[in-house]
């Protein structure tokens, strides 16, 4: 526990983060890309076709990881917002700036892949039901956060405003999560739930898990490298930036 607290406080310090994150980024990219390549080839080439959906189901290997991760990123942004409101940690704000961009792209990709999947299986790319609508709302929330961040010149105030908006927007997450159970919708119910028997064949499940892990690792790498650049820009007037850039 002591170790965890120490790391937590160290990560809150920009110079420590700037040096420490560098080692992680390369590793995350390598592991993540390797997992993505394995998962994608396995998923597209070596899994059996679905009994009802045929080959079109294979887009699950991109749709589910991006949709899931985008939602996770939204929650992470809200948690970072809470951390920023309570402790005013600079790094929480740096994380939010980096994560909202990636979150917006991932949400857009989840919607796009959902449309591509919907055309052969639902017979329509888009339906206005609870699930699709709430994911679209998540995209709008991310865009709103980006716009708000860009519109307020004072960086401290912008961070605080973004934190509050992110926390209020969390209201949307349970609606996404339970929309397939509560409301009538075309979207299929979740196949993988904690505490429930898994409603998906193991041959189809493994590539999905591998791709999800790979995407997590790549996303973490993207966020960390974006955060490093942002930290440099924020702290450009401080001494450690000049030192660490000049000694190279």
């Amino acid at each position: 526990m002591n170790w965890f607290r120490q790391t937590f406080h160290r990560m809150g310090s920009p110079p420590y983060f700037y040096r420490g994150a560098r080692k992680w980024i390369t590793g995350l990219y390598i592991v993540g890309l390797a997992l993505l390549v394995v998962g994608t080839i396995w998923g597209i080439g070596f899994t059996p076709a679905d009994r009802l959906q045929g080959d079109s189901f294979r887009i699950i290997y991109f749709h589910v990881p991006t949709a899931h991760l985008s939602q996770l990123i939204y929650i992470a942004v809200a948690v970072a917002g809470f951390v920023f409101l309570v402790w005013r940690m600079k790094m929480a704000d740096v994380f939010m700036v980096s994560a909202i961009w990636l979150g917006a792209w991932l949400t857009a990709f989840a919607l796009f892949s959902g449309i591509v999947w919907g055309i052969p299986t639902w017979g329509t790319g888009w339906v206005w039901d609870a699930r699709t609508t709430s994911v679209l709302v998540q995209l709008f929330l991310f865009i709103g956060l980006i716009a708000l961040r860009g519109a307020i010149p004072n960086s401290q105030r912008a961070a605080l405003a973004v934190s509050v908006l992110a926390i209020v927007g969390v209201l949307n997450i349970p609606i996404i999560k339970y929309s397939v159970d509560w409301f009538t919708t075309l979207h299929q119910p979740a196949s993988i739930q904690i505490g429930e028997p898994i409603a998906i064949d193991l041959a189809m499940l493994w590539p999905l898990l591998i791709n999800s892990l790979g995407l997590y690792a790549v996303a973490a790498g993207v966020i960390l490298s974006h955060m490093r650049i942002h930290v440099l820009r924020r702290e450009r007037d401080s001494e450690w930036v000049a030192k660490s850039l000049l000694t190279k």
Binding site: V137, F140, L141, L148, N172
Partner: peptide, 8 residues
Amino acid sequence: LVLPLYVP
């Protein structure tokens, strides 16, 4: 900012 919050 506000319109997405209205949707639910």
